[in-house]
């Protein structure tokens, strides 16, 4: 079976400093794959290259076998790669539902239409997406007034607007209360199941990572140092040395033996 994403020797340097140095990995279909590592390890750079925001210096990125390296973000999106951002990026002068409608309008290639009223287009579809993420009762609110967790859910609805095959989520749970995090990750897990999406995400909350990822990769100074199941990764001495520390600041006990998606399954 072809992998959803197949990344080979991805590299990027900023002014001589190798931010990402020959990273290779595969995202399997319907998989939740976590990318973790210290700050400055190159996670964001990696993400930005995957969706085309940054031009890699070299390497290859294949989406279901087709090369997408070097394409601009909008083309990568049209090929079915959705993205959510670490710091939410939304259209603040629009309502929640209009934000989703915007993605649908773009998906249906009607961005240059001058006659119809945008507010009337794809309203039902947008509403369905908001319902999926549990935001239907906030559809008419100004998105500038949303709580952070709700913004993240709205971003997920936007990212799902074009039926993506791959979702890139940059710290999807950052800034949420622990309970919310669990809910959001369960939601993502449901989407993975029902829509057949493959998800690559970064996260600093180890409870989220170890609780919800099928596999975990650890990036340090631009290189992948470990890849494996959550249990393998958390017990790896190298990972503990560069990243995890003694485990005093995350839920060490709980989830150590948790199988992936145990909490997420319905």
């Amino acid at each position: 079976m072809t992998d959803a994403l197949e990344v080979r020797d991805l590299a990027k340097a900023f002014g001589g400093v190798k931010a990402v140095d020959g990273v290779s990995f595969a995202l399997r279909e319907r998989e939740m794959l976590a990318l973790i590592g210290p700050n400055g390890a190159g996670k964001s750079t990696c993400f930005n290259m995957l969706n085309g925001q940054l031009k890699p210096d070299g390497g290859s990125i294949r989406l279901f076998g087709a090369e997408i390296l070097g394409l601009p973000p909008r083309k990568v999106w049209r090929l079915g790669v959705g993205r959510t951002f670490q710091i939410t990026a939304t259209f603040t002068s629009m309502t929640v539902i209009e934000n989703v409608q915007m993605a649908l309008i773009s998906h249906h290639r009607r961005l240059r239409a001058m006659l119809p009223f945008a507010g009337a287009l794809y309203k039902d579809e947008a509403y369905d997406l908001l319902e999926l993420v549990g935001m239907e009762d906030q559809s008419g609110r100004a998105c500038g007034m949303l709580a952070y967790g709700d913004l993240k859910r709205m971003e997920l609805a936007i990212a799902l607007a074009n039926d993506p095959r791959v979702l890139l989520m940059d710290e999807p749970a950052a800034g949420m209360a622990p309970q919310e995090r669990v809910q959001l990750m369960e939601l993502v897990a449901r989407v993975v199941q029902s829509r057949g999406v493959s998800v690559l995400f970064t996260e600093h909350d180890m409870d989220v990572v170890f609780g919800h990822a099928d596999r975990v990769m650890v990036l340090d100074r631009g290189r992948l140092i470990v890849e494996g199941t959550p249990a393998e990764v958390r017990n790896n001495p190298d990972v503990q040395a560069v990243y995890l520390g003694t485990g005093a600041v995350y839920g060490k006990e709980k989830g150590a033996d948790a199988t992936p998606r145990a909490e997420a399954g319905e």
């Binding site: 925001q53 951002f85 990026a89 309008i105 009607r110 006659l115 119809p116």
Partner: peptide, 20 residues
């Protein structure tokens, strides 16, 4: 119209606009 919304979207967040 959709076009007006689209350019306003680019104004609000280029990042988001390009990513959809």
């Amino acid at each position: 119209a959709p076009f007006g919304y689209a350019v306003r979207g680019c104004r609000d967040s280029v990042l988001r606009a390009e990513s959809i």
